[in-house]
Design a protein around this nucleic acid. Structure first.
Length: 611
RNA sequence: GCCCCCGUAGCUCAGUGGAUAGAGCGUUAGCCUCCGGAGCUAAAAGCCUGAGUUCGAGUCUCAGCGGGGGCACCA
């Protein structure tokens, strides 16, 4: 906001130091903490430390904090009171520049009301980034762990896009593998021709089949001979089916595609509900063939080693190729000795496709942290392969979601289906809404309940830092008090309510018709704090995007909502002392509302007008 | 054995090398003549240990202790 002024002052400081033989270190500006006033601050500790080092050689002693304070004081004398700055202070080695309150407040509010939904958008970065998320296996069902992945990927995509990257969203469902075939096998054997009605019923039914099939195919304790024979027979059938799939058997392929569609129908419906629009769908099954060519390419480049003649596999000895003595990236397999591909093989082939066919400069993989080794290996192989984009590949590993009783396990029936949670969220928030806002129409209430219910869920996931594991507890995730999505949404509702009331009273209709607000009255600490937070939003977008951490935005959104709630409670808006103050505060409320919307949008959370 | 995360208040977590380490939940005490109480105000309570780097370390380095995850033909 005050970069021009700051740069000018910096220039003066440099000139002064040069003239007085002070070895000025880099000037870093930061907001002044603990204050009811805005300003920017820099320190002279590093400069004093440099002097101290030089003085040591000549036998003199310089006490750093003391010297820093001396420099700050003399700089203060030199620069006087620059334009846009109300006063300057030198304290404990810091030089503090306080902005003229009125100017600062007006600049911030004006920028927000002018740029609206675009306030905080970063300059174009001329870089194309692809975010890969939403990689559930098909023939399974979408559980709460998949939800964390999806909402994290979506929020990250929105942040990157808003920060100025050209952003592509990619999904990569695991649509083939032994797990998928297992479902086809039991369907064919015991459930042929059946099909439950309803997208979600049908999708979840596949999970039930999977669990049942896995039980039939898993060795039990104290297994009898008959049981063993049956189990082995089933397993042979399953493997034969996989062989047929691989050979392109038309019947199996059709069955596979039809049931895959059942899963994808469910997945698409959920993504739609949580506000995700995928640009590009990749399928694991479609990477199989191209990835075989990749293996040959890596063999030709002498990156991979073919140990099949000795009964081994095609492998990459990553550490050896990198010339590392200590084991770090180890060795991994590209082709089994039977010639079939693996996860790594397909990921390499897909990465190549992303770089060459999609022009991706930066590639982000939102995948469970347990696969960190896999990605370290994949990225190193891409580097050996010569892709310069390899250094801009990033595995955003996130901790896994478990339940209060322990890890999720579909097989043991300990799995929380996202759809069930979403339904429960909507049910609970419908009840809450009836209590809090009895006058709402049924139609509006249904919409609000979904907005708030899903908002609570999204916030519960995104307010956890990436690396943290999290325990999914329904009562905690659907809480609406304190640091939650609904708390933030409620701040927005209150802001909307004030603006609406203002209109109803017929004073003036649109905020643009308000007299240009001047903040030339004495601001309360609540207003100061609120404006301070609003001014920080663009930096928060930048930080969250650069660090790939939606949590930074989640924290900010809460802080902003909290500041608004405090302001709302303590400062009257419509009943301000004068019309001029009221108009200024109305503009502040409108600005806060706008930034709340912008923040929530980046978290894939909707901001309701009423709730 | 090696690699990656994590260790901050009773619990769950924030915290660009910089000034007085912050929230939520829980506990305790207050606040509905006032723009929506899904709210507000306040109190008690904290950096795993030990070295090192630095003018300055919760933050960086190393070691230790404690917890989680991962280590070639699963994905």
């Amino acid at each position: 906001m005050f970069t021009q002024e700051t740069l000018q002052i910096e220039k003066e400081i440099r000139a002064y130091c040069a003239a007085n033989d002070i070895p000025l270190a880099e000037l870093k500006w930061a907001p002044i903490p603990f204050n009811g006033e805005w300003g920017t601050s820099t320190s002279f500790f590093q400069t004093a430390a440099n002097e101290a080092k030089a003085a040591k050689a000549t036998g003199k002693r310089v006490i750093v904090p003391q010297r820093a304070q001396e420099i700050a004081e003399s700089v203060k004398e030199v620069i006087g009171t620059p334009k846009g700055i109300s006063h300057v202070e030198a304290v404990r080695g810091y030089l503090n520049l306080y902005f003229v309150t009125e100017d600062f407040a007006e600049r911030v509010i004006a920028a927000i009301l002018q740029e609206k939904s675009q306030f905080g958008r970063g300059k174009p970065k001329h870089e194309r980034v692809m975010v890969e998320y939403a990689q559930p296996n098909t023939h399974h069902s979408f559980h709460i762990g998949h939800y964390r992945n999806a909402i994290l990927g979506e929020s990250l995509s929105r942040l990157l896009e808003f920060a100025g990257f050209e952003t592509l969203r990619a999904a990569y469902p695991g649509d083939i593998g032994l797990g998928v075939i297992t479902v086809l096998w039991i369907y064919e054997k015991f459930y042929k021709g059946q099909e439950p009605q309803g997208i979600h019923e049908r999708g979840q039914w596949l999970l039930k089949l999977y669990v049942e099939a896995t039980n039939l195919l898993t060795k039990k304790e104290n297994e009898t001979d008959d049981e063993r024979i049956l189990r082995e027979k089933y397993d042979a059938e399953r493997r034969e089916m996989y062989r047929k799939w691989d050979a392109g058997d038309e019947y199996i392929r059709d069955l596979w595609l039809e049931t895959r569609e059942w899963s994808l129908d469910e997945l698409r419906d959920i993504l739609l509900q949580i506000g995700i629009q995928i640009d590009t769908w990749f399928f694991e099954s479609e990477e199989d063939e191209p990835s075989k060519a990749v293996v040959q390419e890596l063999l030709d480049l002498d990156i991979a080693t073919d140990e099949r003649p000795e009964g081994g596999a095609v492998i990459v000895k990553i550490d050896e190729k990198l010339g590392l003595k200590k084991e770090k990236y180890r060795t991994n397999v590209l082709l089994r000795n039977d010639g079939t591909t693996l996860y790594l093989t397909k990921d390499l082939s897909l990465a190549k496709k992303k770089f060459n066919d999609f022009g991706v400069d930066r590639s982000i993989y939102v995948v469970d942290v347990r696969q960190s080794m896999h990605f370290m290996q994949a990225f190193k192989i891409l580097e050996l392969w010569g892709f310069e984009q390899a250094e801009k590949c990033y595995h955003l590993g996130y901790g896994f979601v478990s339940l209060p009783g322990g890890a999720m396990s579909a097989r043991k029936g300990r799995v929380v289906i996202f759809k069930d949670v979403a339904d429960e969220a909507i049910r609970r928030f419908t009840e809450t809404s009836k209590e809090k806002n009895p006058n709402l129409s049924e139609e509006a209430r249904a919409e609000v309940a979904e907005t708030v219910g899903l908002g609570a869920l999204a916030y519960a996931m995104l307010s956890v830092d990436n690396s943290r594991d999290t325990v999914f507890d329904m009562d905690v995730a659907l809480s609406f008090e304190g640091r939650t999505g609904p708390y933030i949404q409620n701040a927005h509702v209150r802001a909307a309510s004030i603006l609406k009331k203002f209109k109803v009273e017929g004073l003036k209709v649109e905020d643009k018709n308000l007299k240009p607000a001047t903040f030339n009255f004495e601001l309360t600490p609540h207003e100061v704090e609120l404006i301070e937070l609003l001014s920080r939003f663009p930096n928060v977008v930048e930080d969250a995007a650069n660090q790939y951490r939606p949590m930074i935005m989640a924290t900010y959104a809460y802080d902003l909502a909290s500041a608004f709630h405090s302001f709302y409670h303590a400062v009257p808006v419509l009943k301000s002392e004068t019309d001029a103050i009221r108009d200024a505060r109305l503009r502040l409320v409108a600005a806060a509302k706008q930034v709340l919307v912008n923040s929530l949008r980046l978290l894939a959370i909707k901001a309701p007008e009423v709730m």
